[in-house]
């Protein structure tokens, strides 16, 4: 009943989607200069290192932008939904959905925490709920 479009996974991004399956939100970290980056990519723009590992994010962050798409209707999105740009406390950003938050409750600067949502198509996405209610 509940599915989402399946992301295309590449050699550069597989760790992220694999981590989600065990409810871990992983961020790529450069072995050379320890800077974090997202979305994942093969080379560090700060030091050009091709060596990298991951850290597990705490899952806490702040909404720095959000929108409520009204048109056109999309597959998998029957109900009202909010798309947010969240800056994790570690400093990187990701696009996500807010859950259990109404459009009237959404604000810039809102504190949020990750909630791993499992979908039918063997997909886990890191969605975010308000910190205060989780």
């Amino acid at each position: 009943m509940s599915a989402r479009l399946t992301p295309t996974i590449t050699q550069d991004t597989a760790f992220f989607w694999e981590g989600l399956k065990t409810e871990r939100l992983l961020i790529q970290r450069c072995d050379g200069c320890e800077s974090l980056r997202h979305p994942p990519r093969p080379m560090c723009p700060q030091c050009r290192s091709l060596e990298w590992g991951t850290i597990e994010a705490t899952g806490h962050g702040t909404v720095i932008s959000y929108v409520i798409p009204r048109h056109p209707p999309l597959p998998f999105f029957d109900d009202e939904y909010i798309v947010a740009l969240v800056e994790l406390d570690e400093g990187v950003r990701l696009v996500t959905n807010l859950v259990d938050v109404s459009p009237a409750q959404a604000t810039m600067g809102m504190r949020v925490v990750v909630r791993f949502e499992h979908f039918d198509n063997d997909l886990v996405l890191p969605l975010f709920a308000a910190e205060s209610i989780s």
Binding site: T6, T13, S65, P69, P72, V83, N97
Partner: peptide
């Protein structure tokens, strides 16, 4: 793949998330 699973799929929505800031 970083956007479509969350329903951010049209040029209007891509622009709006930026412009809202």
């Amino acid at each position: 793949s970083w956007y479509a699973p969350y329903g951010l799929m049209t040029p209007a929505s891509w622009v709006a998330l930026h412009a809202h800031r």
